[in-house]
Every structure is written in structure tokens, then in C-alpha cells.
């Protein structure tokens, strides 16, 4: 699949490149602000959504090697729009459908890429939230286990026996699985 020249925006986010980031704000901040403030949101909501969308795109690029096969403008605006509609849903508010963001160059790949970013990042946030529900000890055990270090070493570091560590780790993971599957409260 051909990478779109607008991949430079994604690369700019990965490098925390001031020029690129400034360009993104100049081109899109006012439009997102207008869209959100006309759709039951405030200036603060617009600022939060704008920032979080850029972070989501960064995360998808950093962790999942997101590569842009469509223009950045409709892709970014759709990510923001979708994220704001999700937020309105959470708040129980209705979107004002007549106030749409005007978009052009809308190909199938634009929708697919934007949906993927929002869905994947929502899923990642849910996973992190489930993890945060675990007790402190469980979080520490799982966090260290996921680093790939030898289990014996981790047990030693935590000052527990190897047997206890293995047992506790399975218990913690089991609780986490329950949270993920929604059958552990």
C-alpha cells in the first residue's frame, strides 16, 4: 500500500517536531473548536479532544507503526469528530447533526484509518483502566513479569519465594482476565 506524503505529519508527531505541530494547530484548531462548541461542547472540551487525538495518533504510530495511506486533513478531522461523538455519548448528550465538519477527499481508507485509531486507542484505555483496578501488589507483579525478566530474578527483587511469585502472578492475571471479560467485579 502506498504511503501518503502527509505521513510527514505522523513522523512530525513522532519526533515532537515543533514546526509540524504548529502547522497542525494552525490548520485545524479553529475548525475543531468551532465544531465542538457548536455540538454541546466548550472550548476546554475542544482543547482536550484536539490534544488527545494527536496523542492517540502518536500512540498508534509509536506502538503500532500507523502509516498514512490517505490525506491527513480528513483523517485527523474524522478522528476528532468520532472521539467527540463518543464523548457526547458517554455524557448522554445528543450531537447536533446539522453542524458537521466539512470534509473532502473522503475515501474508504480515510474512514478505515480513522476508525482504527479511535477503536484501538479506546481499547487500550480500557485495558489500562482494568489494570489500574488491580491491587498495588498485583500491578507490581504483572508489570515486572511483562518486562520479560527471568521470574526467579523478579521474585528475588520482590523479596518473595519463586513458588509464591508464580502462584500470585497467576491469581493476579486471573483477576485481570475477569475484568477484561467483564465477569469479575
Amino acid at each position: 500500500m502506498t504511503i501518503h506524503p502527509d505521513q510527514r505529519y505522523i513522523d512530525g508527531l513522532l519526533r515532537n517536531d515543533n514546526l509540524i505541530i504548529r502547522e497542525i494547530y494552525k490548520r485545524f484548531a479553529a475548525r475543531i473548536k468551532l465544531y465542538i462548541t457548536r455540538n454541546n461542547g466548550s472550548d476546554e472540551d475542544a482543547a482536550d479532544i484536539f490534544q488527545e487525538c494527536l496523542i492517540d495518533i502518536y500512540n498508534q504510530a509509536h506502538h503500532r507503526q500507523l502509516q498514512l495511506t490517505c490525506p491527513f486533513e480528513p483523517f485527523f478531522l474524522l478522528v476528532c469528530k468520532r472521539k467527540w461523538l463518543n464523548e457526547l455519548k458517554k455524557r448522554g448528550s445528543q450531537p447536533v447533526t446539522k453542524n458537521e465538519i466539512e470534509l473532502s477527499n473522503l475515501g474508504e481508507d480515510v474512514f478505515r484509518s480513522a476508525e482504527l485509531v479511535v477503536e484501538e486507542e479506546d481499547r487500550a484505555k480500557q485495558v489500562m483502566a482494568h489494570f489500574e483496578r488491580l491491587g498495588e501488589k498485583c500491578r507490581e507483579i504483572l508489570k515486572l513479569s511483562l518486562t520479560g525478566q527471568a521470574q526467579e530474578k523478579i521474585a528475588e527483587k520482590l523479596g518473595v519465594t519463586y513458588g509464591y511469585f508464580r502462584k500470585k502472578k497467576s491469581e493476579c492475571l486471573s483477576t485481570l482476565i475477569g475484568y477484561i471479560k467483564g465477569n469479575h467485579h
Partner: peptide
């Protein structure tokens, strides 16, 4: 890297969404 980006975006937000934080 992400923390640095967040800090940068926060600063940009203050510039472009002027009433943010009120």
C-alpha cells in the same frame, strides 16, 4: 517521548484554545 509531546501540546493548546483551563 510521549511525555515531552504532551507537554508541547499543552503549551500549544494554551495558545490556540485561549480559554482552556478556565
Amino acid at each position: 517521548q510521549e511525555q515531552a509531546l504532551r507537554a508541547n501540546l499543552k503549551e500549544m493548546n494554551e495558545r490556540h484554545f485561549k480559554t482552556a483551563g478556565t
